[in-house]
């Protein structure tokens, strides 16, 4: 049987032209034209200026910090998110609903509010900062603080992506593994984890993408010392405040391009992985 081509299927419902037209128009005006403007602006910047702006040690340090801290935070989010998703899906415990609702807090809480709250919590006289200070660990106004803020921001992405996949795993697979003599840990590592891996990678990607560009929750806790704890989005803000539009645009373009390349690479790896474990 030949399947009808999707595009040749007649439209039975009304309003397609109008809805699509409006969607494309609005998308173009609000998102695509402004973003294209950023790219065009970069073309007007002489190459030497672009290189000078991006290659400055302070900018390089900030870019490295933004991407490095985002990678670390997203990796920690994967571990913590898996733990939380596992407990929420598999174990009934009192207050589970409340815990489940709390997971979305970083989505709903404004970043600036999260920023001042985390700073207060981890500052040397805060609830957690005071305790950690006695152990000789300082979080607020250091790079560790940046990672903590990024963990907070990215955590729900992992939990929300892993949860439905974990729910859909059929108990039979685990029973078969147990019948064949696998221990619980072995079953987890060799049966459950491979099924969860695509979701974990997606969660990592989302958390990372969000963390790279994060601004509000980070700038309060970061300390913002040049070369040490200054993130790339802050560099853009500083350049804008100095009316250095070309410099700000250059840094923004490098951030966008690097983020998209990394996300693209993760996508490719994930597709390869899928093909290997589920051919066809």
């Amino acid at each position: 049987m030949v399947r009808p081509r999707a595009a040749s299927r007649p439209h039975t419902l009304p309003g397609f032209g109008l809805a699509l037209g409006y969607t494309l128009f609005y998308l173009g005006v609000v998102v695509l034209i402004p973003l294209a403007g950023l790219v065009f602006k970069t073309f007007t910047i002489p190459w030497a200026d672009f290189r000078a702006a991006v290659g400055a040690p302070r900018v390089m340090a900030a870019l490295g910090l933004s991407f490095g801290a985002a990678l670390v935070a997203a990796a920690i989010d994967v571990l913590l998110g898996l733990l939380i998703a596992w407990a929420l899906v598999r174990y009934p415990f009192p207050g589970r609903r409340l815990a489940d609702a709390l997971v979305d807090l970083p989505f709903a809480l404004p970043t600036a509010v999260a920023g001042i709250s985390l700073t207060t919590l981890y500052s040397p006289n805060g609830w957690l900062g005071g305790f950690l200070n006695t152990l000789g660990v300082q979080i607020a106004f250091t790079r560790l603080g940046i990672v903590i803020a990024l963990i907070f921001i990215g955590l729900p992405f992992v939990v929300r992506v892993v949860q439905p996949v974990l729910q859909d795993i059929e108990v039979e697979q685990e029973e078969v593994a147990a019948c064949l003599g696998a221990g619980r840990l072995q079953t987890f590592l060799r049966v459950i984890l491979p099924v969860l891996t695509p979701a974990l990678v997606t969660g990592f990607t989302l958390a990372f993408a969000r963390a790279v560009g994060e601004y509000g929750s980070v700038i309060f806790i970061a300390g913002n010392l040049p070369m040490v704890s200054e993130i790339a989005p802050l560099i853009i803000v500083i350049k804008l405040e100095q009316y250095d539009f070309a410099g700000a645009t250059s840094v923004a373009l490098v951030m966008l391009a690097t983020a998209f390349l990394l996300l693209f690479a993760i996508n490719v790896v994930q597709r390869r992985f899928r093909k290997r474990f589920w051919p066809a």
Partner: peptide, 16 residues
């Protein structure tokens, strides 16, 4: 827009 840094979202309108 979800994968664009908020700061860059503001920047594109400043440029425009």
């Amino acid at each position: 827009p979800f994968s664009v840094s908020p700061v860059i979202s503001g920047l594109v309108y400043v440029l425009l």
